[in-house]
């Protein structure tokens, strides 16, 4: 394709990204820097601030029987609710990728099943710095140390995501770069069980060209950025595999834990 077409594709992906995702990297960085004019996020760093935060932060969903459940389970349930929301947002974004909805419907399902968590962990990096992460659409900031202080196995959930995020954030991507990158991730033609790989690879190929051009324009001083970013796709698969293993452990050891049906569908026979 001509470079004008590739720029139009990049612009389109950036627009659908802004439409599909309520919190962007730019917004998140502005909140963390205290530059939004809104209230600064409520910091959760121990059990007392967690209790205060739970009263102060307006969560989108309040799970039932919350009061009596253990802290770790409550936090985990909120992560689940947010993940389900994210799957819905990512689905909307995927549908906006030119050609995606014309793929075999079963292949669309497979691409989402394998892609959503890689997208979630890429985008989670935008909400993180080395000390913690923004929660509840920027109303709160939960510290990394607090998450590490939770009891086993819950203390092991977020730490690998922070480690990945620090490396990923080091690439200095902007929201437009990320938008095109996650489209590339979704359109991976090597997911298990795909029926018709060729049209997926063709779609991914034009998005890859759009990404290469976008990075060249927005980061002229980092000629290796495209290659470095593609390497991150391997790290993402590793993180998802470990995440799935950890969830299996949690499901076995935590009798109180229930897994949302949508997440059950995604995790079932994943890796």
């Amino acid at each position: 394709p001509e470079s004008a077409d590739l720029r139009a594709l990049a612009k389109h992906m950036f627009e659908s990204y802004n439409k599909a995702f309520p919190i962007t990297k730019a917004k998140s960085r502005a909140i963390m820097a205290g530059k939004t004019g809104d209230k600064s996020p409520f910091v959760i760093y121990d059990m007392n601030s967690l209790k205060a935060g739970e009263e102060r932060i307006k969560f989108k969903q309040t799970p039932l029987q919350e009061q009596n459940t253990e802290v770790e389970i409550r936090i985990f349930q909120r992560c689940q609710f947010r993940s389900v929301e994210a799957v819905r947002e990512i689905t909307e974004f995927a549908k906006s990728i030119p050609g995606f909805i014309n793929l075999d419907l079963n292949d669309q399902v497979t691409l989402l099943k394998y892609g959503v968590h890689e997208v979630i962990f890429s985008m989670l990096a935008s909400l993180m710095n080395k000390d913690g992460l923004l929660i509840a659409a920027g109303q709160g900031f939960m510290t990394r140390e607090f998450l590490k202080s939770l009891r086993k196995p819950f203390c092991d959930i977020m730490e690998p995501k922070f480690e990945f995020a620090m490396k990923f954030n080091g690439l200095g991507l902007n929201d437009c770069d990320i938008a095109i990158f996650i489209a590339v991730v979704i359109l991976s033609g090597d997911r298990p069980g795909l029926i018709n790989v060729k049209p997926i690879e063709e779609l991914q190929d034009s998005i890859l060209q759009a990404l290469a051009l976008q990075l060249k324009i927005s980061h002229p001083d980092s000629p290796q950025l495209f290659a470095k970013l593609l390497q991150k796709m391997t790290d993402l698969r590793q993180i998802v595999t470990e995440h799935v293993q950890l969830l299996h452990t949690i499901r076995k050891t935590e009798a109180e834990m229930s897994l949302h049906p949508l997440l059950q569908e995604i995790y079932k026979d994943l890796y």
């Binding site: 989108k60 969903q61 609710f81 389900v84 929301e85 799957v87 819905r88 689905t91 909307e92 549908k95 909805i101 419907l105 079963n106 669309q108 399902v109 989402l112 099943k113 949302h260 049906p261 949508l262 569908e265 995604i266 079932k268």
Partner: peptide, 20 residues
């Protein structure tokens, strides 16, 4: 198809509730 019925539904109509 049965195995992924919520994903199917989201793909066809993402405005339908997911029963959070």
């Amino acid at each position: 198809k049965e195995k992924h019925k919520i994903l199917h539904r989201l793909l066809q109509d993402s405005t339908s509730p997911v029963d959070l």
